[in-house]
Design a protein around this nucleic acid. Structure first.
Lengths: 115, 115
DNA sequence: GGCATACTCAATCGATCGGTTGAATAGAAC
DNA sequence: GTTCTATTCAACCGATCGATTGAGTATGCC
């Protein structure tokens, strides 16, 4: 995944409305009109949000007569998780190593010994 | 974690420069000047980026004379992962259930049988 | 005290974002 | 063919974003 694609995914999920949409789409596919129902917002605005999610690869569209149902694509969420976990694990390993160093310090090099 | 806090974390990581900083901070703490070195950007701009990461809770600052080293806080990354995983798992379970339904279909209700 | 180093604050600027209204397109239903 | 429903396109608007320049603050060193 390119840096730009990753930026798009993070940016897409930085909006609480779009995160709510993802949460609802995890349960079931939905049309733009269905998605719009709970929000105090025009259908056009919701359509734009869907477009952002789609261009980030988080959702796909299909066709059912006039309806164009929105479907959540879970793989992209997985790629995101992998990016985050890589650095979380790195940081936590570094933290653990620091703990080890401190625990292994022999008494005669202990910093700030009592006067 | 509140919706707004989560928005801040996602927004913070939506910028490739800030993601790169996180990647570097996962390896070692760094000062603003050290962080700024590889970028074609003023130190002030980097300072702003650090501020964004900090207000999202992704990094903390300490003090060492004039230096104010930046330290990555891995716990927030973990919270983020948990949010994503919840919906990824939900979506994938739904996908799996659909597969099961299709597999369990008795022959006489099979859609589109050969003519 | 005087100077260098590390960093932040404030004002500014163009670009992007999230929303609106209004018009247009595509398909179903009558 | 007209009308209703679902959705999108286009233009606009205020707010926020990412960056700049220029000035200000804090600490260490001589």
């Amino acid at each position: 995944m390119t840096a730009d694609a990753l930026s798009q995914v993070f940016a897409a999920l930085a909006d609480p409305v779009r995160r709510d949409m993802v949460a609802r789409l995890a349960v079931a596919d939905a049309t733009v009109n269905e998605l719009a129902e709970p929000y105090a917002m025009t259908v056009q605005a919701v359509s734009k949000h869907v477009k952002v999610l789609q261009s980030a690869g988080l959702v796909s569209r299909s066709r059912d007569a006039q309806r164009r149902p929105v479907h959540l694509e879970a793989e992209v969420l997985d790629l995101m998780t992998k990016w985050i976990e890589r650095y979380r694990v790195l940081a936590e390993e570094r933290f653990r190593r620091l703990d080890d160093v401190l625990a292994d310090l022999p008494d005669d090099v202990e910093p700030l010994p009592p006067a």
